[in-house]
Design a protein around this nucleic acid. Structure first.
Lengths: 154, 154
DNA sequence: GGTGAAACCAGCACGAT
DNA sequence: ATCGTGCTGGTTTCACC
């Protein structure tokens, strides 16, 4: 962990809500000059607290109307099984996120497809044929809401 | 869905990989002038295909070392139950994502905490006391990988 | 889509507190 | 150690063709 002062925390919060804001605009709302604000942001990058900026895309408008979360339990799980599975799963373009987890499942996948029949194709031809795959459970995404996270009152 | 031409698709792909790139730099690699590139990016914003730019933060460096996915099954689920649950759950600062899903669970929550004992506090005092909450299943995040998504060959 | 230009911003000096 | 001022080159964002 790295400790941040009050201003850094406000900067991270403001940028987390909208990373488009400029250093000058942020500084104005915080009562800081533009270079001072910029230096703090750069320091947040340099220390790795901010890893980068990512686009927030509308999957539906891009033609991908179906998002499904898959919980995958491996049938066998030595070191080789995990590595084989991970290598194979990241080669599937429809897989957006691969989460290695501990609990009822071994992996959690976020899969996106054009429609339900497209998803069936991905499931049957790509997911079910993954090495060492055991039980698979699916949850179809209806709606999603992102929250600022626990930093707000930290 | 909105249809994009080849250049727009390349723009979205390039920006999805690194949203820091300038319109000028992108235009140079695509053989387009800087304002033309910028107009295309702005059109992607205006049509809502690009919803915004978000920070990619290192939760661990911010002092939140534990991330847990919770699958929540509601005990009762009329319209009121869903609304009550959603209203209560978005008020918990540790909840980063609320996903309404169809399948074995009704909701999937991404919860982040400082450590395991901090997570236990959130689970016992905030999650388990949510209105209409039934069965809860947990998966602890070990590692996570983001992929570009299926647009690459569309 | 291109060109040109204005306003703005990033990024780096230097000096002050 | 960090802020502020002043500056330069690049970027955004507007004209108009």
């Amino acid at each position: 962990m790295t400790d941040l002062d009050d201003i850094d925390r406000k900067l991270v919060l403001a940028l987390a809500a909208d990373a488009t804001q400029s250093a000058g605009a942020l500084g104005r709302t915080l009562g800081l000059s533009q270079p001072a604000t910029w230096r703090r942001i750069r320091r947040l990058y340099d220390t790795g607290i901010i890893k980068g900026r990512k686009l927030d895309l509308d999957a539906e408008k891009l033609g991908f109307g179906v998002t499904v979360f898959l919980g995958v339990k491996l049938a066998t799980k030595g070191r080789v099984s995990l590595e084989d599975f991970e290598r194979a799963v990241v080669a599937i373009p429809e897989v957006q996120t691969v989460e290695h987890v501990l609990g009822m499942y071994d992996y959690r996948l976020r899969v996106t497809a054009r429609d339900i029949s497209d998803f069936e194709r991905v499931l049957r031809r790509r997911i079910m044929t993954l090495p060492a795959v055991g039980n698979v459970e699916a949850n179809v995404l209806l709606s999603e809401e992102q929250r600022p996270g626990p930093l707000q009152d930290a």
